[in-house]
Amino acid sequence: MEKTISEYLREQFGIVSSLKNFEQTPHFLLSYDEEGTTSEQSFLFRHSNSSKENKE
C-alpha cells in the first residue's frame, strides 16, 4: 500500500519525531547576493540568478 515516508516509518518501526519533515526535504543555507558573493549572516539560499558579470 502506498504511504508517505512518515506513515511508513511510523507504521513499520514506530518512529515519529522530526522525520515528518522529510516530505519537505529540509534545506537551508547559502546565499549568493547580487555580486555572486555570500552573506555570512544569511542562512537562507535565495534563487537570485546573479546576472552581474564578475569578469572585468
Binding site: E2, K3, T4, Y8, F13
Partner: peptide, 8 residues
Amino acid sequence: VFASWLPN
C-alpha cells in the same frame, strides 16, 4: 529500512 516502502 526502506526495502518495502511504496511512496504515495
